[in-house]
Computed example of a mutant assay.
Amino acid sequence: MLVKWIRCTVVDRRGFERGQRKWVELPGAPGFKGRGGGWSREHPDVAHIFAFWENRVFYDSFMARSHDGLAAAQSGTYSDIQVKLFEYRFDVKTGFEPRFTDADVVRVAHSKVREDRVEHFALMQERVWNPAMAGSPGMLRGVFGESPGHEFLVLSMWQSSAERGKYRAGSIERLSQRTQIDDDVVELAGDVVQLESSWTV
C-alpha cells in the first residue's frame, strides 16, 4: 500500500474547502483505497490530507490521467504545498483500514532517521511504540510507512483529541528514553489534525 501525505499552507480557506469536495470523484479510480484530512490544531492555516493507494502503479496511472483536472479546483487557494509518498511497512495496532469516519483526530509524525539507525528505529516502533499506542484508550488504528532517504511516517487515528492527550501526557518522555529515539532521529516533526468529515472519500 502507498500512503500519500499532503501538507498545504492555505490562503483561501473557503475556496480550498470547496475544491476539496471535488475529490469525491476519486472512488472510481483503479487502486484507490481512501482519503481524508483536516486542519492542523496548532496552525489554523495548515491543511493535511492523507490518501491511500493499492500500489505505486495505480497511483502513477491516476497522476498521469485524472489528478490535474481534480486539483485545478484548488488552484490559487494555497501558498505552499508539500507532498510525500510512503510505502506501507506495518500496522500500528492490527487491522489498519484507510477510513476516517469513526475518527475525530489524526496524529502525524514524520521522522528523518540516521542511516545506521534505520533498523533500530523500525524495531522500536514495532516492539515499543506500537504496543503503547495500541493499548491506549481511544486509539483506533494507524500505519507506519517508509520513504527513500530514511524518512518515516507514523499516522495514528484517535476517537478524540482528549483521548490522545491522555496517551501523550503519560507516555512520550518515558518511551523516548526507552527507545533511544534521540540517537535514531535527525529530525522529527508532527501535528494533530482535526478531521473534516466532508473531506473523507
Rank of each mutant, 00 (worst) to 15 (best):
47 A>W: 03
164 R>D: 03
58 F>T: 06
190 G>M: 01
151 E>Q: 13
184 D>S: 02
7 R>M: 07
16 F>C: 03
32 F>M: 14
111 S>H: 12
182 D>R: 12
126 E>M: 05
139 M>S: 15
149 G>V: 02
104 D>L: 05
25 E>G: 14
145 G>L: 01
128 V>C: 12
13 R>N: 10
148 P>K: 08
78 Y>E: 07
173 E>K: 11
112 K>R: 12
189 A>C: 09
48 H>M: 00
195 L>H: 03
7 R>T: 07
73 A>F: 12
93 K>I: 00
198 S>Q: 10
108 V>L: 09
64 A>W: 12
129 W>Y: 05
22 K>L: 15
65 R>E: 15
158 W>A: 03
161 S>P: 14
13 R>I: 10
73 A>I: 11
1 M>I: 09
66 S>F: 15
28 G>Q: 13
89 R>I: 14
10 V>H: 05
148 P>V: 10
136 S>Y: 04
200 T>C: 08
102 D>G: 07
123 L>S: 14
147 S>P: 04
145 G>D: 01
105 V>H: 04
106 V>T: 02
187 E>S: 14
100 F>D: 00
156 S>I: 12
132 A>Q: 11
21 R>V: 07
30 P>Q: 08
144 F>M: 06
192 V>Q: 03
129 W>Q: 07
21 R>S: 15
16 F>D: 06
159 Q>L: 11
10 V>Q: 03
65 R>N: 13
104 D>K: 09
148 P>E: 06
32 F>K: 08
118 V>H: 00
117 R>W: 07
190 G>L: 04
35 R>T: 04
142 G>Q: 02
168 R>G: 12
15 G>W: 00
117 R>G: 05
134 A>T: 10
46 V>D: 00
170 G>M: 02
151 E>A: 01
119 E>I: 14
153 L>K: 01
63 M>K: 14
71 A>G: 04
142 G>N: 04
51 A>L: 13
143 V>P: 01
44 P>T: 07
16 F>R: 03
54 E>N: 06
158 W>S: 02
2 L>G: 00
92 V>F: 12
118 V>Q: 01
60 D>N: 15
84 K>S: 09
27 P>H: 03
197 S>I: 14
2 L>Q: 01
77 T>A: 04
116 D>G: 11
180 Q>T: 12
163 E>Q: 15
149 G>S: 11
11 V>S: 03
169 A>L: 04
158 W>N: 05
161 S>Y: 07
57 V>S: 13
130 N>F: 03
30 P>S: 06
104 D>W: 10
76 G>Q: 04
76 G>L: 10
131 P>Q: 04
89 R>F: 06
81 I>A: 11
116 D>P: 06
144 F>Q: 00
89 R>E: 15
20 Q>K: 06
194 Q>D: 09
102 D>M: 06
81 I>N: 01
80 D>W: 06
176 S>H: 03
65 R>I: 05
117 R>Y: 14
24 V>C: 09
113 V>P: 08
174 R>Y: 12
86 F>Y: 13
160 S>V: 02
140 L>G: 02
69 G>I: 13
69 G>F: 14
114 R>C: 10
33 K>N: 07
41 R>P: 01
146 E>D: 07
192 V>L: 06
135 G>S: 11
46 V>I: 09
